[in-house]
């Protein structure tokens, strides 16, 4: 049977003891789609992503993910905080997923090389993480996820801890990598700008317990230029629209 979705989240709820984190989430995500989820902090967006990543299970409901190629990993997560191993060099970190799958050193090197170039890490391939800046560490996380070549990328506010310049650079790098491979991406952020710059669609979540409040298509053509996009009148309008939706959620929580 052919399916037109990549991920179908059906009536998923998640409770931690008495605390309801997610309430009846229904989302369908198409193959190759770049979906951004914004929501106030504590709304359960990370929980939702961890469920997709297989690190948590839903309390009720189900998630269906279509796996096209059983030989490839289904999903890879990029975490918010630094998650690269301090005891491995940049090269070893980027190749970690491949090594776990038993891919030999020569083949690993071949697959990693272009990613190290694209992310500007080639010169630091043999450096240890403590020798890198925060921005470079996050580049290593992104390169590690892409090297793993999953069908689905799950990103949990990966650039939140970075300064504006680094953030913009990494967003462009991400778009470039994504446009080359068209993976399905679920990207969590609290930045409306980031969601509009990156996504095909922005899902707005309510305060806890998290529900999907709005599903907003992002109409901008690709490839996008981060700087020019922000001048676009639709951009300003959408930004304001999402901001109003979020403001109503932040208020009762505050």
């Amino acid at each position: 049977m052919r399916s037109d979705y990549k991920i179908a989240i059906r009536a998923v709820t998640r409770r931690f003891g008495a605390l309801a984190a997610l309430e009846r989430i229904d989302i369908a995500i198409a193959p190759g789609e770049f979906v951004c989820i914004v929501g106030p902090s504590g709304c359960g967006k990370t929980t939702l992503l961890r469920i997709l990543a297989g690190l948590e299970t839903p309390s009720t409901g189900e998630v269906a993910i279509v796996q096209q190629d059983p030989a490839r990993p289904l999903n890879t997560m990029i975490f918010q905080e630094s998650s690269i191993f301090p005891w491995m060099t940049v090269r070893q970190n980027v190749g970690y997923g491949l090594r776990l799958r038993g891919i030999g050193a020569a083949e690993r090197a071949r697959r990693i090389a272009p990613l190290l170039d694209l992310t500007g890490l080639a010169r630091f391939a043999d450096a240890f993480p403590y020798q890198l800046s925060g921005g470079m560490k996050q580049r290593v996380s992104v390169a590690r996820a892409f090297a793993n070549d999953p069908e689905l990328l799950l990103m949990d506010e990966p650039f939140a801890a970075l300064d504006e310049q680094n953030k913009a650079l990494l967003q462009e790098e991400l778009l470039r990598l994504w446009s080359a491979e068209r993976k399905t991406v679920v990207f969590i952020t609290h930045s409306i700008d980031e969601a509009l710059v990156l996504g095909d669609r922005v899902l707005v979540m309510t305060a806890r317990p998290g529900r999907i409040k709005a599903d907003i298509p992002v109409p901008f053509a690709r490839p996008r230029s981060v700087v020019e996009l922000k001048q676009h009148p639709d951009y300003v309008r959408l930004n304001h629209e999402i901001w109003k939706l979020l403001r109503d959620e932040v208020r009762p929580a505050a």
Partner: peptide, 25 residues
Amino acid sequence: RIYLDVARNLHATRLQAYASVALPG
């Protein structure tokens, strides 16, 4: 914890998690 989450998300086997995360960490 996050290092173990990474290993789990990348489907490290138990033995791989021992060798690549627990022991060096």
